[in-house]
Design a protein around this nucleic acid. Structure first.
Lengths: 153, 153
DNA sequence: TGTGAAACTATTCCGTT
DNA sequence: AACGGAATAGTTTCACA
């Protein structure tokens, strides 16, 4: 489906989507028109979902990351609805997954400081019943890629 | 530092950085040139770090997410160097944080399927000594925002 | 800040391999 | 079926009011 040039283009675009088609064309040894067509095709075929601006965490004054592991006793539909609505309403919660294993969910939070965790915690437990909430503060980010591996497509 | 228009612009750009300045200008009730200048300023001042393409997980054939909690007995500099190098070399590992609490690190992996976890696990433990590795598979993604809250800047 | 012209960038068309 | 070159269309930036 994808050849090496496509994969390389995707790798480049995942790093920097502002690069001009002229520069991208050079990097994959292709003419500007052919490169433009390939990018359009990758978008059309659904490989490229969208293009977004990545903001600076420090500049936005939300340098702190906290991971929260959560268990719940209630698994009924109404509980889940309330949970989903709470997640949608709290912008500090940027990522949530339902997991296998001891805990039911992981939440990733992006906060101005560690103290602010309490605010989000209260907002959350005020809306849904939770048991066994365990927060871990990120002391250091060793890797944070928005780029997916391109080797499998 | 930032006014409502800046924050709205950042919110829009975090969702879709391809929107033309003309469209963005309309959404914040500003002329095209003024809007263009504001965006340039936000970039200049370091609020906007970069612009990237977000690829589709299904299309890229890496639909599976696994979170791995890790403990280690070795905390010396040489171990950490080896760990860092391993993380840099394994593209399936997209995010790693050093944590407070029982576990030392969380790793987020992006994989073609659950079975592939074993490959990455072996690649990792083959390079660094780890104790107490606990993998949790994401059964469902309830939220996955690349957007940061804009309310704190 | 807004308007309009100039500069630049990207896309489409078309002939070719 | 895909490429490269040239024309077209669109977008951003600049000078100036």
């Amino acid at each position: 489906m994808l050849d090496d040039r496509d994969r390389k283009l995707l790798t480049l675009l995942q790093r920097d989507a502002e690069a001009s088609v002229t520069v991208l064309a050079e990097r994959v040894a292709l003419s500007v028109s052919a490169c433009s067509r390939r990018i359009a095709r990758l978008r059309e075929a659904g490989y490229i979902a969208r293009q977004v601006a990545i903001l600076d965490r420090r500049a936005m004054r939300v340098p702190t990351t906290v991971f929260v592991m959560v268990r719940t006793t209630r698994h009924a539909a109404d509980w889940l609805d309330a949970f989903r609505r709470a997640l949608a309403d709290i912008p500090e919660i940027v990522e949530v997954h339902r997991l296998t294993g001891h805990y039911d969910y992981v939440l990733k939070m992006v906060l101005p400081n560690v103290e602010h965790y309490d605010t989000v915690y209260k907002a959350l437990v005020g809306r849904v019943e939770l048991s066994d909430v365990s927060a871990s503060i990120s002391m250091e980010t060793l890797k944070d890629d928005s780029a997916l591996p391109t080797g499998f497509a």
